[in-house]
């Protein structure tokens, strides 16, 4: 059966840690890192990457356009 898998890449240094992406994710992929970036923000990362479907919701609400979204169809 074909399976859609997604992934996101965060531009860590530009992330301001607003958490809107985390809130918008329907599959609970995103968390905020305990560490901070150069600006002192807790940046977003994929805590549960296996759940990501590449739906782009996080990228749509991201006010700083720091999220790139990838999606690939896998034939199992």
């Amino acid at each position: 059966m074909a399976k859609i898998k997604g992934a996101i890449v965060i531009d860590v240094e530009r992330c301001k840690g607003c958490e809107l992406c985390m809130d918008s994710c329907p599959t609970d992929v995103i968390r905020m890192e305990k560490k901070v970036n150069g600006k002192g923000y807790h940046y977003a990362y994929m805590e549960n990457p296996e759940n990501c479907t590449g739906c782009i919701n996080c990228a749509l609400v991201c006010p700083d356009a720091v999220i790139t979204v990838y999606r690939k169809k896998f034939e199992d």
Binding site: A65, V66, T68, V69, Y70, R71
Partner: peptide
Amino acid sequence: ENLRLDEIIREENIVFHKTSLL
């Protein structure tokens, strides 16, 4: 899982990226 991410995070699989007009 890491192997899978490597396969997904490739240029040809991009479905959303920051517009070049920013």
